[in-house]
Design a protein around this nucleic acid. Sequence first.
DNA 1: GCAAGGTC
Length: 929
Amino acid sequence: MHLIIAEKNIAARRIAEILGGKEKLSTKKDGSVFVYEFGDTRVMGLRGHVVEVDFEPGYDNWRSVTHPPRSLIEAGIIKRATEAKLVSLLQKAARRSDKVTIATDYDTEGELIGKEAYELVRAVNKTVPIDRAHFSAITPEEINRAFAETKPLDFNLAAAGETRQIVDLVWGASLTRFISIAAKRGGGNILSVGRVQSPTLAMIVDREREIEAFIPEPYWMIRLDTEKGGCEIEARHTHGRFKEKADAQASVAASIPPLTVTEVIEGEKNDRAPSPLDTTTLIVAAGRLGYSAANAMRIAEDLYMNGYISYPRTDNTVYSKSLNLKGIVQDLSHGVFAEDGKWVLGNMRAKPTRGKKETTDHPPIHPTSYGSPEKIGEGAWKLYEFIVRRFFATLSPDAKWKTMKVNLSAGTEPYTTTGSTLIVPGYRSIYPYSDAKELNLPELSVGMILPINAVHLDEKETKPPARYTQSRLIQRMEELGLGTKSTRHEVIQKLIGRKYIEGNPLRPTLVGRAVTNTLSTYADTITKPEMTRSLEDHMNQIKDGQKQSANVLAESRDMLNCVFNQLEANEQHIGSDIMEMTVEESIVGPCPVCGHSLRIRRMGSSQFIGCMHYPDCTFNISLPPGTWGGAVRTKEVCPVHSLHHISLVRKGARPWDLGCPLCSHIASNKEALGMIPECSEDLISTLHTHHMYSITDIIGENADDLAKILGISRKKAESLQQSAEGVIACLKRRTEMKKFIRTHITPRRGRSPVKVANTLIEAGVGDITALGKADSALLKEAGVVGEEAETLISEAKKESDSRILRDLGIPAASLKKYLAAGITAPEDFIRTHPAGISIASGVTIETVIKHVSLITDYYSLKSPGKITNAAFRKGRSDLLELPGVGEATLRKLADSGIYDRKSLLAAEDAVPGISEEVLATLKKEAAKA
DNA sequence: GCAAGGTC
């Protein structure tokens, strides 16, 4: 069997279609893996890299003393399968192959992916010949040619890719760990470092610094209004910017009639049709259409998967000769594009335009089939339409402009104005994305005298450089060689996810600035794009066989060791620097009690706002747990408390805006405070002026202090505190009931669990015990009826009973056994004799008696008599010896307190479930024995 | 729990 391995499923399918020709193609799917078969050939697609480099085992603990971050530099590197299922299927096929062809993408990473496949094949099949097909487009011509002239795999090229992987892992992981540990960051809060992300972050930080350091300078510009035959013309002074206002004013004053046309220069300008699309250009254009970089790529990926456009990750801007451009235009000339498509066919330029970059892996991004707006969908249509029109434009003639430059003089002052008219629309008739505008000037000739309608002196200011937008940043990254077409937008997302940058356009956060500062002081290499450039140089040398991968890695490790010398010597310093710089982001505002700063603090998943002067000041505001979202401060500040508003942010959810934390704290505690009988409005406001907002604040205060604050006696203060504790207990029970209702009631329209609970609370049912005693009329009012109501009540009763039992001191393990035996309420323990309970539940008699005593003590009833385990066992076997006594009879007897011969003989009352005659017979038998 | 690079 001939096994062909492609880089991805779609490529595999198309290769199979082409090579299979007229042969019947069968598609098999195993899990999520597709296999295409024709004749004796089988084609499989990988998912890019199916193995990953990692450190050998033993380096997982970040805080290990024996394996500190630095030890990662020399740690062994292993490869681990990331797509286990796919790998096992691949190897299964490889075992039975007599020929293998690697058909991954035609670039460095593709060669490495090919080598990974090669090693997986070799691991299970030592002898099968393996070759490599190179193709720059998946078209019949290219594929047939590539498979007719296969070559050996280029191990040097793959080694170049592998070297990059290892350098990235070693630098990235060791530095990430070091700096995270130094700044005491863990969990989802680490500080990452990498060859691509760190220089990208540094660009944003640098830009922000430039903006901050920028001092605007005033300057002046002069414009002049004139007209010709009713057509208004604006001309500008040729001096441009005046630095001195006086000079500008002098020029304005000298701008006097006559205004004479001194020169008219007419020309023609060629406006070249745009070049084919690569990923970066697509993202930039998408940015103008309102798509973020990551969103644009997601949509493009979708369009590609559905067959509407070609592969969206490419650096290529030159169509290959094998691409049937005319055929594609014909295919697209439907529906919305019918007319424009026909126009393109009728006006096609001799050769399509070409861009500067030409690569071999994929064609430029172009449409592959027609999709109507309905099929494509609203969110993606603008992007798809752009891709189609851009494709049209690359096949359309250039546009032509007529230009006119007119020089004028007003008194001694020179002015100029320009106009432009589109004379040949060319590609512009089907490509409306450029903002170049026509500006028609009237006919003017040298010597003409025009009126001066006005002379304006505009005061302006120089402006700082603009912040990066996502697409501008991606362009810049491409210029600097940072990242690839597939990863640039992901890098930006990563920086946002790490809270290094935010906003649109992008600004650095304090964390982002702190990390960049530290890195550029102690690990400059990783913050510079030059690291990527020199890595690429080394990769080229490895590819050409001029250098060994091992040498490059050794050099790189030496460098990293030098960096660590710096870092380790300054670890304390680095940690405190970052922590100091970033603390500001968690500061909410002044503490209302002591005036120091309040900070958001996190401990595990719980979070609260606390005073930085703790423990001297214990003021704090509780916040919802982190599962609702991490608390961050927003820009808004409360005018009353001068505190930043707080927002809870969670992945995949809209942020929950709490507003001013103190306002919301006060509001949410107001109702609870009102539940304390002694709390009048006045008393509450007195409490507020002393910064006591919640019930816990009242309870936590020293009783004497509380008395002083409120101007009441100590006794009254104590009773207030007691009432407060009562309210807390009551609230706690309510919460429990709410939770209970939530787990037992399915939400339905107009009847949410919360609503049900609130109706019950209003009616005075405030805990689970009360719910167990509630009547069905009330539940009906709350919207719970029939069987559901019965279950709710009986479950509540069960829950409440078992709580009572637990509170009385019956341990959970025994309780479980009792409940399983149907002994659930305290009454059951009194109604049934301990002997019956013991037999039913399997708990030993001595323990049962101990537990029953707990209950009888509580209800002030007589305790049950003592029975030892031994006596109980003996009595039980004695009874079983009596004729006609089995387990069932034994149990009935036990329920009535009969557990041995003696108690049987002493029994006076009837035993439920046993007839009097039988009982009498038993007694006789017992007396005999 | 770290990187960057493929692809889903």
